[in-house]
């Protein structure tokens, strides 16, 4: 997956200036970088939520599972309804997803009764249920403690096999463990600014 000649500005400040970025398709890609390096912006551009940029993305994915930096759950829907809202059918059942994400018994709970970490796991379940061809995940495991992370990450990545996955993270160890390709946005930005 290639992004060619990407230019994105916020007012006068350029986040990307004629940058070319490549991701491995059907693999796990991690994006690392300091705050403000444009990680979230890049995901928003790829997802189509931000259309105010110059450049070309190919191929264009149409079915994209997004995990945002915040859980972004519908407050009036239960956990199960929040998961099922994205698709009529899925290769996974809600019960299976709740089991692997250790949310058993929470299907009928409203988001307000869940902790931050639990909400984030519901957001992950929603993305898996939608089963996009491309997964864009913005710091999806940041709210999970180490023990939980060790238990559920292998289960999640098992279900992401064969998908193109782009994950934004600050966790270098996690990236080294699971990524096929690691992209450091700081390096891209530095090479651009030194040109």
């Amino acid at each position: 997956m290639k992004i060619n000649n990407l230019t994105k500005r916020f007012g006068r400040k350029a986040v990307f200036e004629n940058a070319s970025i490549e991701f491995e398709e059907n693999k796990i890609n991690y994006i690392l970088g300091e705050s403000g390096s444009g990680k979230t912006t890049l995901l928003r551009i790829i997802s189509g939520l931000d259309k105010s940029f110059k450049g070309e993305i190919s191929p264009q994915y149409t079915k994209i599972s997004c995990v945002f930096q915040e859980p972004r759950l519908f407050p009036n829907l239960t956990v199960a309804e929040n998961i099922k809202i994205t698709a009529e059918s899925s290769p996974y059942t809600v019960d299976d997803l709740l089991k692997i994400l250790e949310l058993e018994g929470e299907a009928d709970a409203l988001p307000a009764s869940l902790s931050g970490g639990m909400k984030m796991r519901v957001s992950l379940a929603r993305a898996l249920y939608y089963n996009g061809d491309l997964f864009l995940m913005d710091e999806p495991f940041g709210a999970l403690n180490d023990e939980l992370r060790q238990r559920i990450l292998p289960e999640i990545f098992k279900r992401l096999e064969g998908k193109t996955v782009i994950i934004v993270s600050h966790n270098v160890e996690e990236a080294k463990s699971y990524a096929s390709n690691i992209l450091n946005l700081d390096l891209i930005n530095n090479s651009l600014s030194s040109k």
Partner: peptide, 24 residues
């Protein structure tokens, strides 16, 4: 606005958007 983006990203149909987001 964040939930509107969720609807946009997942291409949630209009009827579901009304019932799950607009009406509440």
């Amino acid at each position: 606005r964040d939930l509107l983006e969720v609807c946009q990203a997942y291409k949630i149909p209009r009827k579901k958007r009304i019932v799950s987001l607009y009406l509440p």
